[in-house]
């Protein structure tokens, strides 16, 4: 019996050695003949060089750089941030993608472009407000929506972000300036929710997401007029005029219930402050007082 056991162990040992020999041959192949990944990277660079028009080059570059990051090693700290071509100032954070928005599927997360004066501000809001928060309104006679935060990653309704609540502390410390990076990056967005038979759900929930995903992947098979039909249906909840800025940035009864959404009192005061409201209302006339400029006044 012991002899048989010894024999089995010996055979297993030999089998392991054989497997190792095969694996070693496989492992050494790229070391001798080159790595596939390296060749692929070279191919991608060649493709970039061979691309014809500027637009084609840009597209190839974007594909190649889609996950590119930039590391800055200070010795005592490493700053890892997304790579943005031509960017001078450091970002110091990772842009969290919104995987749960059906609008972002086609429009991306920097969708506003029409109004030169406010496009950057609107895109700023798109960081923490779902598109339908401003671009949809409840139908007349229907119960008002409730606004809640949803997790950008999972798409589930979530609690008010702690990072948002923590802002309050900054108003009471000397460290306020160095803590600015917190603003806007809460990992969540505010979106309208409906109450379906006692259950709170997002206006654009999982069902809508699956529907739009299917349209995006299969639209090439549709006739042009069918595509138009589908687009119309998908956008039917979009109102002609979005919610104006002043509806939220006002002291009395703002459209978004900031306090309920977890905005701390100091931040609410700031958002609904007369200065902000005036700035929005008299947008183009808001000049910097020259007195406050160094060497000015």
């Amino acid at each position: 019996m012991v002899k048989l056991l010894k024999k089995i162990i010996f055979k297993l040992y030999v089998l392991c050695l054989m497997a190792f020999t095969v694996w070693y041959g496989y492992f050494m192949y790229p070391l001798i003949f080159g790595f596939e990944g390296k060749e692929k990277a070279a191919e991608s660079l060649l493709e970039m060089g061979a691309a014809g028009t500027e637009e084609e080059k840009m597209f190839v570059r974007l594909i190649a750089e889609q996950t590119k990051t930039k590391k800055t090693d200070l010795g005592y700290r490493v700053i890892d941030q997304p790579y943005i071509e031509g960017r001078f100032h450091h970002i110091g954070f990772t842009i969290q993608q919104d995987n749960a928005s059906i609008c972002v599927r086609c429009h991306g997360n920097v969708p506003h472009d029409e109004s030169k004066e406010v496009r950057s501000f609107l895109n700023m809001h798109a960081f923490y407000l779902a598109c339908e928060t401003c671009h949809s309104r409840p139908d007349e006679g229907v119960k008002e929506w409730a606004f809640r935060w949803y997790d950008k990653d999972t798409g589930t309704i979530t609690n008010n972000p702690q990072a948002l609540k923590d802002i309050e502390k900054l108003y009471h410390t000397e460290q306020e300036i160095s803590q600015y990076p917190i603003y806007g990056n809460y990992g969540a967005k505010v979106a309208p929710t409906l109450n379906d038979f006692g259950e709170t759900r997002l206006l654009h929930g999982v069902k809508e997401m699956i529907f739009v995903d299917r349209f995006v992947t299969e639209q090439a098979r549709l006739q042009p007029e069918q595509k138009s039909q589908m687009k119309k249906v998908i956008h039917r909840k979009v109102t002609k005029d979005p919610v104006p800025c002043k509806d939220c940035h006002q002291e009395v009864g703002p459209y978004l219930p900031f306090a309920e959404l977890g905005y701390p009192p100091s931040r609410v005061r700031e958002l609904t402050n007369v200065a902000v409201v005036n700035m929005i209302q008299r947008y183009k006339e808001f000049y910097i007082p020259s007195l406050l400029k160094p060497g000015g006044g």
């Binding site: 637009e55 840009m58 200070l74 700053i79 943005i84 071509e85 031509g86 960017r87 100032h89 450091h90 970002i91 110091g92 954070f93 842009i95 920097v110 506003h112 472009d113 496009r119 950057s120 501000f121 895109n123 700023m124 809001h125 798109a126 960081f127 923490y128 300036i177 160095s178 803590q179 600015y180 990076p181 603003y183 806007g184 990056n185």
Partner: peptide, 28 residues
């Protein structure tokens, strides 16, 4: 304005422009 991380747009040449300023790093 520039403390907000999402302050951004796509420029006329199709480049993504992020106008956020990380003041902590600027001060470093």
């Amino acid at each position: 304005c520039h403390k907000h991380r999402g302050l951004s747009r796509i420029d006329e040449n199709g480049k993504f422009r992020l106008f956020y300023i990380n003041n902590e790093l600027f001060e470093s």
